[in-house]
Simulated assay, not measured.
Amino acid sequence: MHVPSAHGMFSDCAQLAYADVSRLTTSGSTDFGEMFYECSSLRQVNFGRFDTSAATIMSLML
């Protein structure tokens, strides 16, 4: 699945402990800001082939 922007994708998911984003196609995506913001239970993320090479915004990503 192509993701043009990941901004706030999982924000405020307080019960999220694990996220697998390895299958997301993020090439060309520029905004990853607040992607996991306020995910207080998050302990592990599988980024796999996660491409942030075009990123211009990554503030508060984790």
Rank of each mutant, 00 (worst) to 15 (best):
C39V: 04
C39K: 00
A14Q: 13
F47R: 08
A17I: 08
Q15G: 14
S27H: 08
D51S: 12
A19R: 06
L62W: 13
A17P: 01
D31L: 01
E38L: 12
S41F: 05
E38Y: 13
A17F: 09
A14D: 15
T56S: 09
A17L: 07
V21A: 06
G33D: 09
L60W: 13
S27C: 07
V21M: 11
F36I: 05
G33E: 05
Q15P: 02
T25V: 15
S40D: 10
D12K: 07
P4D: 05
S5N: 12
E38H: 14
M9Y: 03
R23T: 13
L62A: 10
G48C: 02
L62F: 15
R49A: 07
S22H: 02
S59E: 12
I57N: 10
L60M: 10
Y37S: 01
G28F: 03
F10A: 02
M1V: 11
G28D: 11
A19F: 02
M1C: 15
E34D: 08
F47I: 08
Y18L: 08
L42H: 00
H7G: 03
F36C: 06
S5D: 15
E38I: 13
Y18D: 07
M1S: 13
H2I: 03
T52C: 00
A54L: 10
A19W: 04
N46D: 14
G33P: 02
S27N: 15
F32D: 09
E34T: 08
G33V: 09
L60S: 11
Y37G: 05
P4F: 01
L42G: 01
G28W: 06
H7P: 08
F36T: 00
D12W: 14
D31T: 13
G48W: 05
A54P: 04
F36E: 03
S59D: 15
Q44A: 13
A54W: 06
S53W: 00
E38P: 02
G33F: 02
V3A: 05
S29M: 14
M35E: 04
A55D: 09
T25H: 13
L16A: 07
D51M: 07
F47T: 11
F50Y: 14
T26C: 05
L62C: 12
L16N: 08
S53F: 01
S11V: 02
S29L: 03
M1D: 13
A6V: 01
A54N: 04
A14F: 14
V3N: 00
L62I: 10
V21K: 06
L42K: 00
C39H: 00
M9I: 09
D51V: 01
D51G: 02
S11F: 12
S41M: 00
M61Y: 09
D12R: 07
A14W: 14
A14S: 09
F32I: 11
S11R: 14
T26S: 08
Q15D: 15
D20W: 15
A14M: 09
A17C: 14
S41D: 07
H7Y: 14
H7L: 08
M1R: 13
E34Q: 10
G48S: 02
T26K: 08
T52V: 15
M58W: 11
D31F: 00
A55N: 00
V45N: 03
